[in-house]
Design a protein around this nucleic acid. Structure first.
Lengths: 132, 132
DNA sequence: ATTATATACGACAATAATTATCGGATATAA
DNA sequence: TTATATCCGATAATTATTGTCGTATATAAT
């Protein structure tokens, strides 16, 4: 409950790894997977996803890899989580009404308040706060 | 990611249901399960758990059920979540070191800061904030 | 006492979400 | 031309969550 996914963690590890280098230098999937002991194929998918989101820039071919593309200080954590994992919320019912309790639920409104608090908290931090 | 479990939701629904009654009145598992469309057996387990935690008081036999026992305003949400679901944390590595990345991880410290923010936020609210 | 209705609880099963793997494609530097 | 990299869909395995079953115990009502 209330956990980050591995995908998000792997993404953050990779972004911090790139951030720690001079901006023009390239990091390959294999390099990152090896250094942090992350399964290669999963990390590959994650980085492809980040590239599609224009957060990193892919460089094809031998000696290729990825470089940072976005300003990490401009991406708050809500935006980042949603770009990596989709909609954010303590309960599904805030963005998907397929819930058996929804018609009678007596905690929907209070949970929504708490959810708003959580969202505000994550929105007050950027990816850069994690990568530096 | 970052979701509450059903168990926590069912517990909160039940607590709010009891809170809405005069304190001496009893609510049975069946009554709550029916009213909110919750699977009976799961709710039963959840309520047994709350009873073991001394949050509600069981009353055996026919016309039995449960009544509130604890002051919901005295239980903050971190305490509540942990009493219902166990230790809280954005990543397992804060209370269980069985993680392949742990030796090399470059985001552990920043994630821990964010985790502290989250914990503080949930600690600033009580169960009563959900049930009234 | 007997019965009906309630909680107590361990073991197990099903489902869903997450995590991981495989196969083959395209791009490009050397 | 070759080696090394990203790209990407399909699928498998694993884990966590959610739900079920069977049986025991407690007690109010008759």
């Amino acid at each position: 409950m209330l956990k980050l996914t591995r995908k998000v963690e792997y993404a953050l590890i990779a972004l911090r790894h790139m951030q720690d280098k001079a901006p023009e230098l390239v990091s390959s999937t294999k390099e990152i997977a090896t250094q942090y002991n992350i399964p290669l194929e999963i990390l590959a998918k994650t980085l492809q996803h980040l590239a599609k989101e224009n957060i990193i820039e892919p460089i094809n071919g031998p000696r290729g890899g990825y470089r940072l593309k976005a300003q990490l200080g401009n991406i708050n954590l809500v935006e980042f989580f949603e770009r990596v994992e989709g909609p954010l919320g303590l309960s599904d019912c805030f963005y998907d009404s397929n819930c058996l309790q929804i018609d009678y639920c007596n905690i929907r409104t209070p949970i929504q308040r708490i959810n708003a608090n959580m969202i505000n908290m994550f929105r007050s931090m950027t990816v850069q706060d994690v990568t530096s």
